[in-house]
């Protein structure tokens, strides 16, 4: 994850409390989504950014995960994400996100 974004996520967590933040990812690949999720939960796996060694354990989900769908307005989801859902390997992404969340527990 971009170093500046790591800094911003860290600042939000400090300002609002980690328990009040949900990170919603839109990465197109399972690996990229997993890396971003790992960064905001366990810490920066590349040891480069402000979240190196910082385990924020934020709730992290990918926008296409089924478990989140009931939270959205279906029409807006279709308008904004419907096309991408057709393109993405949602199963692989969901599996990767579940893995990270399990490691986090």
């Amino acid at each position: 994850m971009d170093l500046e974004n790591q800094k911003r996520v860290k600042e939000f967590a400090e300002k609002y409390g980690a328990e009040n933040i949900v990170v919603l990812l839109g990465a197109a690949e399972a690996e990229a989504a997993g890396l971003a999720a790992e960064t905001v939960t366990l810490g920066d796996p590349t040891f480069a950014g402000p979240l190196t060694g910082v385990s924020l354990k934020l709730a992290a989900y990918h926008v296409c995960e089924e478990v989140l769908k009931e939270e959205y307005d279906a029409n807006i989801y279709e308008e904004q994400v419907g096309m991408m859902e057709m393109v993405l390997d949602v199963d692989a992404i969901t599996e990767e996100m579940n893995n990270i969340r399990e490691q986090c527990q």
């Binding site: 197109a28 690949e29 690996e31 990229a32 890396l35 096309m83 991408m84 393109v87």
Partner: peptide, 13 residues
């Protein structure tokens, strides 16, 4: 690098 095949992703979209 986990960023996939960028042109291919564009064609799929």
């Amino acid at each position: 690098a986990g960023a996939g095949d960028v042109p291919l992703a564009n064609y799929k979209m």
